[in-house]
Design a protein around this nucleic acid. Structure first.
Ligand SMILES: [Mn+2]
Ligand SMILES: [Mn+2]
Ligand SMILES: [Zn+2]
Ligand SMILES: [Zn+2]
Lengths: 139, 139
DNA sequence: GTTTTAAATGAAACATTGTTTCAATAAAAA
DNA sequence: TTTTTATTGAAACAATGTTTCATTTAAAAC
């Protein structure tokens, strides 16, 4: 799906920064940090606008934010950017490689249900696994 | 166990900052942010020393660090501060309340095993659940 | 196609979190 | 009590994220 169509579907204005941001993520095979996005967006990148747009795109359900650790956030497109606000948001596990630093959306590894103590109500659950990725574990 | 004994067992020097840090956590019933620690440590608090000591105490296995989100880290004592470097580290789930903001170590809710795609090797797994805590869900 | 309007942008200044270097200090060993 | 070595705290810095406000632009109205 073209960046302009994604924005259309989600009723967001088609601005150059947003188109560049989405394009940068579409051209990536794994989640990207702000710095990686900056390189990919070249002159279309402005820090303040970037922060505002990742917020807007996350709220709209176009992208998701992955907190790798307290100083590292990465961004990835949602699987079904197609459907407008269709909140079925495939909740998957994230993986971060201790060797190459790459982050992966393990789209087929679903988050498990946790039975919590009495009185605790789950709304969201984030699972961040750290270890060695398929490229680094072979060494 | 007294703060001074904890440091003894872990072969760490008994400095005032470290004693105050451990005492502050012992007097808390749930994980604390740096700002909360600052209040509890009063004049024994110095930002730079604090950061160095949480690092040292984490490395020694006295405390653990909980990344609630990209701008919030909290600290808690490990369950068995007693045993020297005894790395059985009860890996438990963490919970953050969207209403009161409190974080909880759900010591009895173990992290589940995830079967990952071929080639991915797990070393650590962090689970952060967000929702409403036992105090806030009753409203 | 031109005008209008509301949203998005980017500059500036700020806030928070965390780190590095280095001289002074304090804990523990001799 | 002296010596040794780790720890401390000041200063300066770096990275990440936010707020305010005048300017620009997308999209709607005409
Ligand atoms: Mn993902
Ligand atoms: Mn915990
Ligand atoms: Zn790797
Ligand atoms: Zn609560």
């Amino acid at each position: 799906m073209k960046p302009t169509d994604i924005l259309q579907v989600h009723e967001l204005k088609k601005t150059n920064s947003r188109l560049a941001l989405i394009k940068a993520l579409q051209e990536s095979t794994f989640p990207q940090s702000e710095n990686e996005m900056k390189s990919r967006m070249s002159d279309q990148y402005d820090r303040i606008t970037f922060y505002r747009n990742v917020q807007a795109l996350e709220d709209a359900g176009v992208i998701h934010r992955i907190v790798v650790d307290s100083h590292t956030v990465k961004y990835a497109l949602n699987c079904c950017e197609t459907e407008k606000k269709h909140q079925h948001i495939h909740k998957h596990v994230h993986f971060n490689c201790k060797s190459c630093g790459k982050t992966f959306c393990l789209e087929n590894t679903d988050i498990q249900q946790y039975r919590l103590p009495a009185g605790f109500q789950t709304e969201e659950c984030e699972v961040m696994i750290k270890g060695y990725c398929k490229f680094c574990s072979q060494k």
